[in-house]
Simulated assay, not measured.
Amino acid sequence: MNLASTIFLAFAMSTDAFAAAVGKGATLHKPRIREALKTGVIFGVIEALTPLVGWALGRAAAQYVTAWDHWIAFGLLFLLGARMIREGLSNPGHEEEKPNSHSFWVLALTGFATSIDAMAVGAGLAFIDVDIFSTAATIGFATMLMVTIGVMVGRVVGATIGKRAEIVGGLILIGVGSVILAEHLGYLS
């Protein structure tokens, strides 16, 4: 795989993480670049590790990961999104009540949910001549960059939609999960 293909793959793998990051950024009270970078690093590390895990599992586990990755991602993102929507509806939410940051575990779970498909990609890469470590690092870096930008975009969106940011963020996560599921089931080509 050449450098251009690796970079294209990396940015393609990070689009769902970008969308989730916009939702995460929208739910925060004016997130700063430090929070955006923290979120980007967490997502990027996870997105870099999952293809390595998939690659290590190789052919034996590829059929199982591929068979279930979209359902797992959908389920996790749906639950996280539903939780955000419930919180947005139960708390009419005053701007000052928005958190300044998300917990590590919420970010890690969201990052994992958006990167499960990278495990299947890693398993597929085990069968071609590719430097998996540089490919995984490129995927991780692209995700870090896209998520950092996504959180800052979410800041603008959050300021525009005000107290409904939590609901919109939840809808974005459910939407990302639904797109992942629809793509893998063949409804989107």
Rank of each mutant, 00 (worst) to 15 (best):
V53E: 02
D129F: 04
E96P: 03
L76M: 14
S90K: 15
F8M: 15
E97Y: 04
L188W: 06
F104A: 01
A136I: 07
R86V: 13
F18Q: 04
L89H: 11
F74C: 12
R83S: 15
A21H: 00
T6S: 04
L3W: 14
E35A: 11
G158M: 00
L89C: 10
M1C: 11
I7D: 05
Y187Q: 04
L77S: 01
L9N: 01
W55P: 05
H29C: 10
A113N: 13
L52K: 07
A61M: 13
L171S: 15
S134I: 13
R155L: 04
S5W: 10
M84G: 09
G75R: 08
A10Y: 11
T114S: 02
R164P: 01
A113F: 08
W71G: 10
T39I: 10
E96Y: 15
D129Q: 13
R164W: 10
E183S: 05
I33T: 15
R86T: 08
I139S: 08
V22F: 14
L76T: 06
G23E: 05
E47C: 03
G40S: 01
V153S: 06
A108R: 00
L37H: 02
K38D: 09
A165L: 06
E166C: 09
L171R: 07
A73E: 00
L52N: 07
E97T: 07
H184F: 06
E97I: 06
D117C: 05
I180Q: 00
A21Q: 07
V168C: 09
G40H: 03
G175W: 09
S134A: 11
I46N: 02
P31W: 06
G75Q: 05
S189T: 12
A21V: 02
I172Q: 07
I132L: 08
D117F: 03
A182L: 08
G111F: 06
W71Q: 10
I7G: 04
I149F: 08
K38T: 14
M152Q: 05
A12C: 10
A165G: 15
L125D: 00
G162F: 04
T148F: 03
V147M: 04
F141R: 10
A108E: 09
Y187F: 13
A62Q: 15
A123R: 00
A12M: 12
V151K: 05
A62V: 05
P31C: 13
A26L: 12
I174R: 01
